[in-house]
Structure formats: structure tokens, C-alpha cells
Design a protein around this nucleic acid. Structure first.
Lengths: 219, 219
DNA sequence: CTAATAGTGTCTCTGAGACACTATCTA
DNA sequence: TAGATAGTGTCTCAGAGACACTATTAG
């Protein structure tokens, strides 16, 4: 074998949509190294787990997740990305629904909160680059697959669905064209229920037909 | 810091199109471990280089490459993917033109040759999975970008261009529709030259306008 | 003139996008 | 009945795909 000392971490870019904004979870560590610095949550990969398992573990440590979408993004390996030594990171992107956003308290960080992607604080490491990469991938996935179900609540209105697309892709769509398109894809079905407690005409509630992520060329 | 012993390698899936077939470079090692076993070329990442640099180094060691396309695919990290210990690999895909296929002799392998992707020998590690993943990515890139230029010679005929698409995507296209589409994308230009030494009407030669990989939605 | 490949135009159908009004609910 | 959002159809234009013949070269 070879002599090689490279440490391996997983970084999780955890997205959600809250209050008409795309947000990402950041943590502030209260112990060294990187004390008082915001970053995306990361941890070392254990020798007994593959990277995906490590990413799930990290994710569960921070949020109450049931149905979460997790996808490997890219491996960042700049020699100088971590001043302490050689550390490469396998970056993952996670999508959580508003319902699942219960941030757990946990040991090595003093704070954790969601930040809107267009007003992020200064970030440590190469985390800005990683988040930008993640946003691009998310946009691509939104346009070509049915992943949006992992951001929406289980039952949702067509307006909510459209809103999520508009927020993530950062553009607007014509109501009629959007509905026509979604209808033609056969990816959602009506639940028969309606919104309750709203002060206007209540909208019909829909749910996704298939949990599996398919290529559907949404928009 | 943490105690962690994980070795990091890069694996290169090197594609080319020769004799109307999509082929991939495999090596057979003549030293242990994995003696006499075919695999895709791989090597350990040095502590002083990032993964992409390692992949380029590996590539240059095996082929005479000038203009090569290299893209990170995915990081494979199954705990048991290497029986000797914990080894994760960052897989890359490379595209080389027929002109560049000069396989160098080198130290740790006894043999290296291109195999058609649809008749591969038995492979070590999880390399079958890696090649399948690479083929999918290549097909996607061919459909949505102008990467095909890294498989074709500098000057090529429209028939050769179409052939490359047909081979990689494993389907056929109508001549007129194919040309109409390519024409509408403005990604190639005529050189003014023609084929020479052929026993039929010589075809016009074209070249790609832009070396940069763009999203163009070819087919 | 034969063999082999290069090269070219039209029609149909589907889907994207522009666009405005009526329906239903609460207070 | 006012305020707020839900929900719906048509037309135009562009691009995908089906389809068959003529042009050019070497020998």
C-alpha cells in the first residue's frame, strides 16, 4: 500500500423553502477549530460507513427528517481548502420540507439556522463555492425531475407548487401554462380535499403520485 | 483532529470511439494486488495534488493527450469496495480522440487496451458500476452539450459527427433532421476543405467553433 | 456507367408561450 | 358585496420527426 494522509469529510447543503425564500442551513461552531465561524454542516466520515451513510447521519443529527432527499454533488479536493491539513470533502445536497424543519440542539455548535441563499453570511472553507454548486444542481433537478416533492408538504395546492418553482428557479410562470404543463406530466393527483381556514376561495389539495425521482422535463 | 484511515484514489474511465464502437481503456496489472485482473486505470491521490490533477497525471501516464476532456463523475465509497482496507475513489471520465490514442508503456501494468463497452471482460472492484455510471453521464453530455468535439478529430465530416452520436447514444438519426438540427445550433463551421483519397463524393470538412463546453441541447 | 456516399426541402403535428376573464370562499 | 385567490381555453409560432430524390467523386 501507499503512505497517504488525507482526511475525508461530508458536507451537507440542506435546502428548504420557507416564507417564499430558498434557504440553506448553516452552523456556527463554539469550539475550535473554526470557532464562531458559519459553515455548512460537515463531519468526518467514519471508517465503517460509506459517504452517503455519513451524510444521512449528519443530517439526522441536525433535523427531524423522515422523507429526505439526499444526493451526492461533487468532491472538493483543493489542496489548500483546509489550513489544518489535507482534507477532501464529498458534498451532498439535501431537501427537507417545511414540516421537517426541526433543528436539533447538538454538541459541537452553538447555533444553527437557515439563511436565505441570497443573503448568506461570510462562510469558512470553500463553502460558498459548494453552495453555489448545490444551487445550480437543485435548479437543474427542479427543471428536469419531480424532486420538488421533497420540498413541499405532503399535500399542497397548485399555487404552492408553482411558488416553489418560482422561488428556486428565480423566475415567474404564467398560471395557465404552468398548470397545463404539470397536468400533462401526470406526476401529481388530486386528494379530493381542499384548503381549510383560508379567507378566500380554498384551493384543491394535490399530492405527488410517485416518490421515485424521475426525469420529467418539467419546465 | 480525528483518527481516520481512509485512502483516496482516482479512477479514470477513458472513452474513445474507434471503428464504429465506443471503447474504454482497461489495464491489467502484473504486480499484486489485483495481479492479472482487468480494471479501469486508477492511482492514489498524492497529498500535494487535488483529485483533478491526479486524474490528469494518471491520464498523461497512459496516453499522449493534448486536448482531453476530463470531468469528475462521482465518488464511490462503499466500505467493502476494496478488500485491503478502506479506499474511496473519485471517479473521472475522460474523452480522447482517435488521434490521441497512443497508449504508453508504463510500470505497474503488463497490458493496457481498449475494450468495446458492450463486451467488457470481468472487472475488479466496483468498476463495472463505475463504467455504467460513466456511460450514462457521457450520453447525457452528448445530448445536451458540444462535448462530442473531444471524441472527433479536429476536422470531421457531418457523417462522422452523426456516426459518433449514433454510436454513443446507441440509436440512429435521420440524415436531414440531424443536419438541420446541428446547423441551427451554430456550433460547427465549414473549414472550406474536403475529404481526400476517398472513392466516392468527398464530404466537406467542419470544425467546432468553440472549445468551451456549452449547454446546447443537441438532440 | 456503376458503385458509393454526400447533400438537400416540405409537410404535419406537438408543445411552449402569450394572453383575460369567471368562480368561490370569508368577513 | 368587497377582497382575495382559484381556476380555466384559444391562438400563434417554433421545432421535432417522417419522408425520397439528386449530386459528386473514383475507377
Amino acid at each position: 500500500m501507499i503512505k497517504q494522509h488525507i482526511l475525508v469529510t461530508v458536507d451537507n447543503v440542506i435546502f428548504t423553502v420557507i416564507q417564499d425564500r430558498l434557504e440553506v442551513l448553516l452552523v456556527k461552531r463554539d469550539i475550535e477549530p473554526f470557532k464562531n465561524q458559519w459553515s455548512i454542516p460537515w463531519w468526518f466520515v467514519l471508517e465503517t460507513e460509506d459517504c452517503e451513510v455519513a451524510a444521512y447521519r449528519e443530517l439526522r443529527e441536525k433535523t427531524n427528517v423522515k422523507d429526505v432527499y439526499l444526493e451526492q454533488l461533487y468532491t472538493f479536493s483543493d489542496v489548500k481548502r483546509d489550513s489544518r491539513g489535507r482534507v477532501i470533502t464529498v458534498a451532498y445536497m439535501a431537501l427537507v420540507t417545511r414540516e421537517n424543519i426541526v433543528i436539533n440542539a447538538w454538541s459541537y455548535t452553538s447555533e444553527a439556522k437557515f439563511f436565505p441563499v441570497n443573503s448568506l453570511p461570510k462562510l469558512g472553507f470553500d463553502h460558498k463555492k459548494i453552495i453555489e454548486y448545490a444551487i445550480q444542481r437543485l435548479q437543474w433537478k427542479m427543471e428536469y425531475t419531480n424532486v420538488s416533492q421533497y420540498i413541499l408538504p405532503n399535500k399542497f395546492t397548485l399555487s404552492e407548487l408553482q411558488k416553489v418553482y418560482e422561488i428556486v428557479l428565480n423566475k415567474t410562470f404564467d398560471v395557465r401554462n404552468f398548470r397545463k404543463k404539470i397536468d400533462s406530466l401526470h406526476i401529481i393527483k388530486p386528494t379530493g380535499e381542499k384548503e381549510i381556514g383560508v379567507q378566500y376561495r380554498p384551493a384543491k389539495l394535490y399530492k405527488f403520485i410517485n416518490k421515485k425521482i424521475d426525469i420529467v422535463e418539467i419546465l
